[in-house]
Each structure stands twice: as structure tokens, then as C-alpha cells.
Design a protein around this nucleic acid. Structure first.
Lengths: 239, 239
DNA sequence: CGCCAGATTGAGGAATATCAAACAGAGTGG
DNA sequence: CCACTCTGTTTGATATTCCTCAATCTGGCG
């Protein structure tokens, strides 16, 4: 499970994600003066970066790959609260000194930066740019979160799944064939459905040639049709 | 609808909510030096404080009363994204220069403070305490929002409603009889259910003497039982 | 009184879950 | 290479939850 995760000291100056990170906008000098230990983490599928309710020690930037944030209920049910892609942040709830609200589990081979929260805290006091970047991410997370409330509250399974697939695709703009490391159970836990129901709808989408799967690669064949299903589902409004 | 809302210049020094507001922790001197126009707003039921997609000009602090944040879909469906009580903030999405993500509608007679976002922006740059307070609220909103995702994704109607009633009650700790200005349709729009279904479950709760209604006052008679229904609903896990 | 918005109730049907079984593919060990 | 196992998927049958539509009921209020 939580076997030793490969890690080494990271070189931020060379980082390809640098201008999309929370350190974007800092010049080389500032970046060097951070004095921050940034660990370079290699995550394999199934690795647990942190667990729900643990005191938060680190935050992470996902440079590459995919991670799910899972909340486990007493009933044993798991809910995927958020899905993270390259450029996303995780574990930052700890900045207010709280415990982790979810477990972070690696879905596909990932590269992450691990930041010490206490150091990051100090840093953000000192550098308005960093602070602003974090605030912006926070704001984004809230917006996404609220969009999901709307999805879950207002739309039906087909529409939710269609929306979800399109959103997933938007994270890989230039790719026709998308990495798609989710199981049906994952999708179900994200959309608030049963595994079987997800399976059925996916099968249906495939039959209608809206999407196509091979291995863990997904291809969206008819985004327009999917968007239509995702949108004002006329099943709801027959007129 | 958007008829003139009563407003006057507010006196922050006298405010009873002061130490729960984003200006908490500032001394009188600092508070005076804010140089901020704070309008004192009187909201009546049905008043629209702002509309979705409008450019955001003001943010508000709800001193007293209740407000709903509504997102309207193209399908005509309304979803209540958040319910606000005394002490809550609204309209702050505008701090990042965005448009309003929801419409804010007054549910019960309310008193609010209206803050100019641009001024607030400058202020939060200058005063770390204010900035930290806003950040904290943001964090809280995200947490609440994620809790709601879990509710909507994992729980069934009965459990959702039970949770909701208990949460509502928690906002009025010392009251046995709670102000409850929501219609069944409001509750439905909050929980992602139909009006009729909400009505049925409420009736059921009343029959079981878990709750009691008179006018727009609500009383929770058996919080334990409600908590039980809200929790690990044994209908899910028969064992 | 008559009117109206909201609440309730019932009946039927659609959406979704649950349970069970079969199926497919990727190791893994002989 | 083949059985074997494991995990994830698919499919079917059935049960449950929830929605929709229509009717009635209620309480305020002109």
C-alpha cells in the first residue's frame, strides 16, 4: 500500500511546469531564495499520498498523471470528491492547519512535487504572488465544486456521464486519444451512481459510436452529441 | 423584484457582528482607517441582491436573516448552491474580478453589509488579518461544498433531508424553535429532489414525531433519530 | 366569500440500485 | 503453453427509489 514512494530533491529551476505552478511569475532569483525543500515524487498506480483525517504535513503539485481525492463514509461507501490532472494542487487544506479531508490516491503513473506546508505557509506570507496563486486555485476549486453540486443535483445519469467525459477530455486538449485510468467503479464513485449503471451507459455510448475505448485510452468520437446529452436533456423537458 | 432596497451608511464600530466579521481582530483605530463605504442593507423576502452572470460590484456580509444562492440552468431548473445564515459572506467570487456565479435571493427579512469589491480588494492587500479572514471563509465554503457533493453523491433522499435539517438547526444553537423560511420547492432545489418527494418525507418525519412545524418555525423533536437516519442509513447496510 | 400559492396525497411510470451470473483480460505458476 | 486466479466489465432480472402528473387540500388575504 503505502510502500516507500520514490522521491528526491527537486530542481524547480528546470521544471517544465514552472510557469503553471504557484511559483509562476517569480524570477530565477526569487525562486532560488525560496529556501524550500521541494521533493520530487514518483507515484505509481494505487499509491496513497496521504490519508483522510491524517494531520496534514505536505501539499503537492501534480506535474503529470492523475490522482483521485476520496472521502470514505462510515457506511463503507467511497466518494470521489475531486479528480486531479497535471497542474492541479492537492493537500492544501492543511494550510489552515487542518487535517486532510480526503485520501489522495494515484490513478496513473504520476510525477508530483511535495511541499512542506509550514514552509509554504511562511512563503506565502512573504510573497504576494505565491499567495495570490494559491488563492486563485482555491477559488477554482470552489467553482468546480459548485458546478459538481449542480450536476449531481440537477442532471441524470446519462447527462452527468456525458458532462464528465467532456470535462475529462478538456484536460487533454491536443490529444485525440485520452489517457483514461478510471475503472467503472471510480466513475460511479465520482458521479454518485452504481458501477453497473455506469457500465450500461458507457456501453450505450459505445454502441451509438459516441466514444471508443481501447485499453485505458478513451476517444471521444462525437463531442457534439455528447454535449447535447450533457446539456438540456430533453428527456427532462419534452417540449 | 429588484425594487429599491433600503440602505444607509453603516457604522461598523457599533456592529454587533464585528468580531465574527472579516474585520474581526482589527482595533478601533484600524477599523476607522479603513476608509471604506459600508452600506447597511435591509433585505425583504424575495429581494434579489445580485443576479447570476452580472459583473460583480459588491460583496455582502449577512448580519441577520437568510439568503439563498441560486444557479439557474438553461433547462429552467433552479439549483440552490448554498444557503446563508448570519455571519456568512456572499458575492466574494467577484474578488478575482469575475462575474457572479449565482443569484442571491433573500429568504427571510435580513440585514446585510454591502462592501465595494474594489475597495475590499485594496484593503485585503494592506491588512493581513482581513486577507486571512477572507481566505478562511473561502476554505470553509469549499469544505461545505465538498460535504454537499458527498451528500448528493452517496445518500438517499431521507438521509439527505435529515442531514439538512440537522445542519440548519446547528446554525441556531440556542433556539428550540427555528426560523425556517424555506418552501418545499426550496428544499428540493437544495437537495436535488422533487418538491413532492420532499413533502412526503417531511410529512413522514412529522408522523414519526421527529420534527414539528408551525408557520415558518421548525422544531427538531428527536435529533438522535434524525442523526441516525442521516448517518449510516441501515437501509443501505441491512447487516 | 373567492382566490391563490404552497402543501399534501395518490397512482403510475421512469430512473436507478441491487443481486446474481457470466464474461474478458492480465498476470502467475506449473 | 496451459490452467488458474484475480480483478474489472458486462448483462439480465428484479426491486427500490424517485419523479411526474393530476387532484385535492390548506391557510392567508384581498
Amino acid at each position: 500500500m503505502n510502500s516507500e514512494i520514490a522521491s528526491k530533491r527537486s530542481d524547480c529551476l528546470q521544471c517544465r511546469m514552472r510557469d503553471q505552478s504557484i511559483f509562476a511569475g517569480l524570477n530565477t532569483e526569487e525562486l532560488c531564495s525560496l529556501g524550500m525543500e521541494v521533493q520530487d515524487i514518483e507515484g505509481r498506480q494505487g499509491d496513497v499520498l496521504y490519508r483522510m483525517k491524517e494531520p496534514a504535513r505536505y501539499a503537492y503539485t501534480l506535474r503529470n498523471g492523475a490522482v483521485k481525492l476520496v472521502s470514505s463514509l462510515e457506511s463503507g461507501q467511497d466518494v470521489i470528491v475531486r479528480l486531479l490532472h497535471h497542474g492541479d494542487l492537492l493537500g492544501f487544506e492543511g494550510m489552515q492547519g487542518e487535517h486532510h479531508r480526503h485520501s489522495a490516491i494515484v490513478l496513473a503513473p504520476s510525477q508530483l512535487c511535495r511541499l512542506d506546508l509550514a514552509e509554504l505557509q511562511r512563503l506565502s506570507e512573504r510573497l504576494p504572488k505565491v499567495r495570490a496563486a494559491i488563492l486563485q486555485r482555491w477559488q477554482d476549486a470552489l467553482q468546480k465544486s459548485e458546478e459538481r453540486i449542480i450536476e449531481l443535483g440537477a442532471k441524470r445519469a446519462e447527462a452527468r456521464l456525458a458532462t464528465f467525459l467532456l470535462q475529462w477530455a478538456r484536460r487533454y486538449p491536443q490529444l485525440r486519444s485520452l489517457p483514461f485510468p478510471l475503472t467503472r467503479t471510480d466513475i460511479a464513485a465520482f458521479l454518485g451512481l452504481s458501477t453497473e449503471h455506469v457500465s450500461r451507459i458507457m456501453a450505450d455510448f459505445k454502441r451509438k459510436a459516441l466514444i471508443q475505448e481501447q485499453g485505458s485510452q478513451l476517444e471521444i468520437l462525437k463531442p457534439k452529441s455528447l454535449a447535447h446529452i450533457a446539456g438540456l436533456s430533453e428527456a427532462h423537458k419534452p417540449d
